[in-house]
């Protein structure tokens, strides 16, 4: 009723006055199920953002279609600053390659990216390779022998791996699973040879010696995985594919609102408590706003389009 009253008041005054933004609750759509990586990151950020903006934030999880269901549903929202999308990059830059989606990377008003991490490829300790280079050589020497688990056909993880493999002429069998947890389970049980997924689930197993991670998909190496080579050191720094998260608004959102939100996000993402939280998941804060963010989305989209095309996955 609080909102009803506020809304009635706003109607009485006339058009909403932006100087007062935000004057009611903000609804954040998360195109992933509750409890996942994007969900926890966004919810934690939401609690900080509530304080910063002085309004409450309601979260709506709409999972499915690799994120496209939630994003498409979000497209119907009004660009009034009260509907935001907290997503990772896959639904925006990867999914449109393999599905018919009603949106493109430029169908939104970008607000800010928040954090990022790399994907990694890990093997069992007995795998005949100790470095990233040896790993790729072993795969190249045995086309079609090894299976690697990933987050789903045409998902960012698969495209990130294939982007590396295609450069080296490697053929490995992709086994799609429902998520990193499922991939990890099948990797630990020996049902697939290679773990492909985000870093944080597999991290404890590298420490216990049950997994050795030999490659990360970022250009630079990742401190938490000392054995894994960054792509730069393998001479393919341009093949970097990251897992990163962002907040978007519907196209046509007022610039004043975008600026207000970007400023609030920049502050909350770099809040020590949030940075510490990100660290436990192997993520680092990285705020990119405005046109730079739009450009980042478009570049990634174009690069992955080539990979998808080579795989014959594209629509």
């Amino acid at each position: 009723m609080k909102y009803v009253a506020l809304a009635l008041a706003a109607v009485a005054v006339g058009t909403p006055v932006l100087a007062e933004y935000p004057e009611r609750a903000i609804e954040v759509t998360i195109p992933a199920p509750a409890g996942g990586g994007t969900d926890t990151s966004a919810r934690k950020l939401g609690t900080l953002l509530e304080e910063e903006l002085g309004t409450s934030i309601a979260v709506l999880n709409v999972a499915g279609g690799g994120g496209s269901v939630g994003v498409t549903q979000f497209m119907m929202q009004k660009p009034n600053g009260y509907s935001l999308l907290a997503t990772w990059n896959s639904p925006i830059t990867t999914v449109p390659q393999v599905q018919q989606t009603a949106y493109q990377p430029d169908s939104f008003t970008p607000i800010a990216s928040t954090s990022e991490t790399a994907y990694t490829l890990c093997v069992k300790p007995e795998f005949p390779a100790e470095t990233g280079e040896e790993f790729l050589a072993e795969l190249a020497a045995n086309p079609g022998k090894y299976t690697y688990g990933n987050d789903g056909i045409g998902g960012t993880m698969q495209l990130a791996a294939e982007r590396i493999f295609q450069g080296e002429g490697i053929e490995a069998v992709a086994i799609p699973f429902g998520g990193a947890g499922e991939t990890l389970q099948n990797f630990l049980g020996g049902h697939v040879d290679i773990y492909g997924g985000s870093i944080s689930p597999v991290l404890p197993y590298t420490e216990s010696g049950e997994a050795k991670c030999l490659i990360v998909t970022s250009a630079a190496a990742v401190p938490a995985l000392p054995q894994a080579a960054g792509l730069e050191s393998l001479g393919m720094g341009d093949k970097e594919t990251l897992l990163w998260r962002m907040v978007l608004a519907p196209a046509g959102t007022d610039q004043a609102i975008v600026d207000r939100l970007a400023e609030a996000l920049e502050k909350t993402v770099n809040d020590p408590s949030y940075v510490e939280f990100l660290a436990t998941k192997g993520e680092v804060p990285n705020v990119v706003v405005g046109d730079a963010l739009a450009e980042r989305l478009q570049n990634e989209y174009d690069a992955l389009a080539i990979v998808a095309e080579n795989l014959g996955l594209n629509q």
Binding site: R43, P201, F277
Partner: peptide
């Protein structure tokens, strides 16, 4: 997720 938000690393 809740344990992670309280700083624990699942594993």
């Amino acid at each position: 997720g809740a344990l992670m938000i309280h700083g624990l690393q699942p594993g």
